[in-house]
Each structure stands twice: as C-alpha cells, then as structure tokens.
Design a protein around this nucleic acid. Structure first.
Lengths: 135, 135
DNA sequence: TTAACTGCAAACAATTTGCATTGTT
DNA sequence: AACAATGCAAATTGTTTGCAGTTAA
C-alpha cells in the first residue's frame, strides 16, 4: 500500500509532510529519534511539525514510541505485523531487533490478578554487543 | 541497616542531602519522580544536587531508573530484593506494582541468540485501572 | 587539609504552544 | 469556502554544567 492510501485508510488528511515522515519511518528497519528522522528529510520541515505528525501517527497506532533509559530520547518505529523489542548496547548504542514478544501470557496473568485492562507495554533489554565485548 | 551505614557500605561519602534523598526513596513503596522527591524533602536542596545524588545512587545500583512512556518523566525506585515491574494506568496515572519478573529465561534465550551480554531491562505495562474502567 | 559535595546561575536539550499563513478537501 | 496543517517564534520543562563556597573524612 502506498503512503497516500495508508494515510487515507486511517482517515488522516494527506500532506506532503505527513507523507514524507511516514515513508521514512516505514523504510527504516530500526527505530529512529526525531533528529535522525529530520536528517533524512528531503524537504525541510519544522521540528514542531514533525512532533505533531508523530502524535497523529501514534494516535492512529501506525507507529510506536519507546523511551529508552539512555540516551533517553524517544524512539519512533513503524508498526509491522511482527511485534518486536530492542536490545540496546550500552557501550556503542547499537540496536538489535528481537522479533516476537515474551509477554502475551504474562499480560493475561497480570490482567487476571490486577483487574487492569492492559493495552500495551514498553520493553527493552540493555547489554553489551559482541563487538564491544572484544574492544 | 541505617542510611549512614548503607552509604558507607557502598563507599559513598556521607552528606545530609544524600541521607535524606536515600531515606525518602527507601521509605517509598512506589517509584518517584524528581518532583515528588523534592516535595518530600524536609530540608530544601537544589534540583541539581538531587540529580547528582540520584546519579551516584544509580551508579552504585542502589536505585533503579525507569522512563515511562507517559508522562515521560523519569521514575526512581529503591532497589529491593524482589525484582518488580509497574503497571501504569493511562487514565489516572496510578501505578500498580507487579512483583516478580517474567524475563529471566527470556534474557538467557536472547543472550544465546544474539551473543549480547544482557545486564538489565526496562519493562512497564500500560492499561486502565479498575477504578477508571467504571468512571 | 584536601578532595569532594552543594548551591546558584546559566546553559542546554527536548518538547509544546499561540498565532498568522498556507494547503487540502 | 471551511477547516485543518504548517512554519515561525517564543515559552515550557527536564536536565546538565561551571564555578565559588562549604563540608566530610
């Protein structure tokens, strides 16, 4: 599906800024910070515009947001069919994608125990990548 | 163990500011933001001092830091024997403690698969608490 | 006494807001 | 034409830093 249709499918008004932000996120295999996103823009746009677009995409659950422990700048990620988490190297910052999620059953158990209705979670792992273990 | 000894055991120089910050965190069953912490101080102290003290306590792994998705202000928590996570109500902000951790085996699997050495993780759940489901 | 810690003020960074202008439907 | 989105500038908020004065060991 092209970006234009994807926006329409979510009832988001088309603008070239929204198209560009979404297509950059969609093309990236790794989650991105606002600054990384801005650096990839072909047409410059104001940071406040980017923030507002990300808010819309989050609202519609087209992307996800994560706030890592360090550096604590938010990461935005296009939501694909495979739910995934990140393993972040605390030395070099490299992000390793971990496909799948270990929390399905756990969330149900917690719902049963607490009576909360759980609708999402934030999980990242932190450690040292193979490369940084050597150097 | 009293706070003074606890600081000494971790080779942290005693100051009344450090004593107070640590004792407040230790007394709280819930994780706290910097502002909540400051509001409980009997002796006022500068915010930069609080940040620096928290850095020391984190360094020595006496406390943990979490950066929730919303509101994205860091939470600090005294580290007890029972590893735990938080379930945060996205309506009223109430934090429910979940004792235990579902990630032990998972971390080992991920280590085996990725060759990273994993040393910590961040996990919180988000949902709607029983009270907010009614109102 | 010495090195480390604190307070203060200023800098910095990330994010949000108000408002006039522009663009989409 | 009507309403919503963008750009710009300014305001907010959270956090960090430099430095002079104070304090713990």
């Amino acid at each position: 599906m092209d970006i234009r249709s994807e926006l329409k499918a979510h009832e988001i008004k088309y603008t070239k800024q929204r198209e560009e932000v979404l297509s950059i996120l969609k093309a990236s295999m790794l989650p991105m910070t606002i600054n990384q996103l801005r650096d990839q823009l072909e047409v410059e746009m104001d940071l406040s515009t980017i923030y507002r677009i990300l808010d819309v995409l989050l609202e519609k659950e087209i992307i996800t947001k994560t706030v890592p422990l360090e550096p604590s700048q938010a990461l935005y990620d296009y939501k694909r069919h495979i739910h995934k988490h990140h393993l972040i190297c605390t030395i070099c910052g490299k992000i390793q994608i971990i496909e799948g999620c270990p929390l399905h059953d756990y969330e149900h158990q917690v719902e049963a125990k607490t009576q909360y209705i759980i609708d999402r979670h934030q999980l990242e792992l932190y450690g040292v990548c193979p490369n940084c273990q050597i150097h």
